[in-house]
Nucleic acid binder design. Sequence first.
RNA 1: GGGCGCGUAGCUCAGCGGUAGAGCACUGCCUUCACACGGCAGGGGUCACAGGUUCAAACCCUGUCGCGCCCA
Length: 891
Amino acid sequence: MSLSTTLIDKTFDPSELEARWYAHWEASGAFRPERPDARPYTIIIPPPNVTGSLHIGHALDNTLQDILIRYHRLLGRDARWVVGTDHAGIATQMVVERRLAEHGQPDRKTMGRARFLETVWDWKAESGDTITRQLRRLGASCDWANERFTMDDGFNTAVTKVFVQLFNEGLLYRDKRLVNWDPKLGTAISDLEVEYREIDGHMWHFRYPLEDGSGYLAVATTRPETILGDGAVAVNPDDPRYTHLIGQRCRLPLVDRLIPIIADGYVEADFGSGAVKITAAHDFNDFEVYKRHPDAGIPVINLMNPDATMSDACPPDYRGLTREEARRQVIADFDALGLLDKIEPHRHQVPYGDRSGVVIEPYLTDQWYVDAHTLAQPALEAVRSGATKFVPATWEKTYFNWLDNIQPWCVSRQLWWGHQIPAWYTPDGACIVAESEAEAQAKAPGVALRRDEDVLDTWFSSALWPFATLGWPENTPELSRHYPGDVLVTGFDIIFFWVARMMMQGIHFTEQPPFHTVYCHGLVRDAKGQKMSKSKGNTVDPLTLIDKYGADALRFTLAAMESQGRDIKLDEKRIEGYRNFATKLWNAARFAQSNGIGAYGTGANGIGGQGITPPAATHPVNRWIIGEVAQTVAALDAAMAAYRFDGFADTLYQFVWSRFCDWYLELTKPLLAEGADAALAEETRATAGWALDQILVMLHPAMPFLTEELWHKLGERPHDLILARWPDAASLPRDAAASAEIDWLIALISEVRSARTELNVPPSAKLGYSVDGASEETSARLAANATAIERLARIIPMEGAAGQGGRLQLIVNEATFTLPLEGIVDLAAERTRLEKAIAAAAKERDALAGRLASPGFTDKAKPEAVEKARADHAARTAEAERLGAALARLG
RNA sequence: GGGCGCGUAGCUCAGCGGUAGAGCACUGCCUUCACACGGCAGGGGUCACAGGUUCAAACCCUGUCGCGCCCA
């Protein structure tokens, strides 16, 4: 591609230039320039699912990260955005299994583990670059050259080492506990993968005959099928209805088993019948009760097979039935025995697998657990001490709450796709944990070993992402340079998944928290505020939006709407508006180019195009815009330091459109016109070129494509914009006198325009004016800015005083401007206009007077506030007086 | 049941102690030599409600009402 300067086209086509620039940046290594002496700046991407595709939440998350990375790269930091994808165990395995079914191929079990895994790797190879391609469309300037994957060899080494070390430290162990079992997927799943749905169910009341034949105990349950596994009945110790039964036994119908009646505070007397069946193997609460009563002899009976059909532990009649069939059968059998007391409608929470959509079964199995409670303590301390900060800080509470109550973390999954657990079993059931089979074998010479078939929870490996991506467990230069990272940018909904686990493992294995800041953004919702979901059909595809409006417009929209974690209601109108903004800048650059304004410091003077130091401008408008740039840079720096992406975008929007385009370009048109002072024109072209360059740099983090294109269109450059230098606010000159003059000029022009419109003066009519009470400074300014005033306000000075007829009068500071409008102006309309202005000034004057007179204000308020009130009061008083005089002159 | 957050212009949202802001939408005018994806000007808010603190409250405190989310 040619980087030579060319004329800027009349139309701006985002798609063409986006593809061109992205390829160029990536090929030229611009995403990670060699900066060995610079301070590192590191962001670790929350790795997207390798077989997923980019949704609008990713677009937000990665836009924010890219803005941070590009900003810091422009600041000269050794910026690195570590990128890669997650193998996403369950999700990916499900996708592949579904594809096999769709294509009529043998299922997983039929084809066997080895062939199935080959199929998954094939699928990963085929579809795995979809999401990374989409990230590129967005403009994400990641370090692709070092892309990682949570199942690559290096990761496998890291995962194995972590597993073995935690095991050796006693922080990882095998245990038989209840897990959330997904009978459809045939695996344990995380608490976080369980969603509770409100279901209209029933509360069945059954009669359990007392052992001594003295009657029945009514037991209420929502899950009759688990009666077959009951090991006890519990009542509240303070429930007078049942105290006499505590310690007795009752006979479990259908099973004909005697079970104890125990007392436990967990039972609520006024819920159900006040007597709760205890099925330790199928209910989390019941399991806790069981553990609290070790002497009660409560049996733990696993009623189900892994697919949730009834197991051989049930009486013969129920074996092989599904959960649902068993429920119906149990109810019918109780009814037949006359032991069904009553059925009440009952709305309750039922756990469902968020991926499989089936009811989750609390299920007693052998699994591997991590002692999360122990690992959580340093992770909590890191945030308490401020070593890691949440932005906004309110999310710390969520983090604390979750880690404070964390349970042992079940890390084994009955899947094939994932890191296989490095544990081997001897024929007599002994378990050997080792980094390799050879090592395991060495510990048990001559014994046949069988490897644990299960794999690790995806989050077990994701937790290592911030350091394993940098080469850990090797002590690589990359690791020492880029770890810990600077900021993790993620949705608040993922604090439990990502943040907490990365903090726990990061601190345990590297002794440092993996990032000093966690920025949590909100969810992207549709324009009505509904959460987007495929089932609702209200999702928006970021790629479609990019096609329609350009990546820059989408990025800018997401940044502008991101205000510290609040959810974003995405309205396409907003994107359209920022597309218009991009077009505005494009046209401004086109205008600049047609006026001989180009890359600052290139061409004849050839300073090299760095454009850091502004030209030594003499004209107030040029000195003013340099000061405005300085102010803008400072505001942008402050916004970035505070992670205020909305403030960053808004500052740019206002500066580019409302300052640079609306005023600077308009005010300098006369200075560039034919016949204007040549030296001044040259100065103005230089200043405009410089200011435009700074705009491109400042806007680049948010709109990288458009700005890079214009950067090159405007002149020969020694380097791409992506590698330019961010302006230094402190070193830019600010001229208070020039600012005051231009502010005055803008106020004057605005006053005139406003009055003209109000009095229906035709826009084309050029009016004469005279001025009274003008200070020397104002007179000088009027003379110096005569051309701009004529052009933008369409008024020219006239000889002599105004006559007695119709006239338009306006006040700017101390001066009164009179525009005779004999026959044109409607006297009544002008009177109304002046009266309105007087009323406004008087209202403020009186309010200020009231405040100044009120007791306490002058001695209790801050001196600055008092001073400002006095100054404002004086100004409003004078304004009202001058307007009053003007009204009097109308006659 | 516990916790968090939100109610500011028609819409979407900033502002969080010193005279109410932005974008979009709306109204009027403008085929002005960068841009109609534009220019100029304008209308529109008792900042949910009720108390309190303060010289001063959209902003701090308490309560009420309405909405949302998370955890159990």
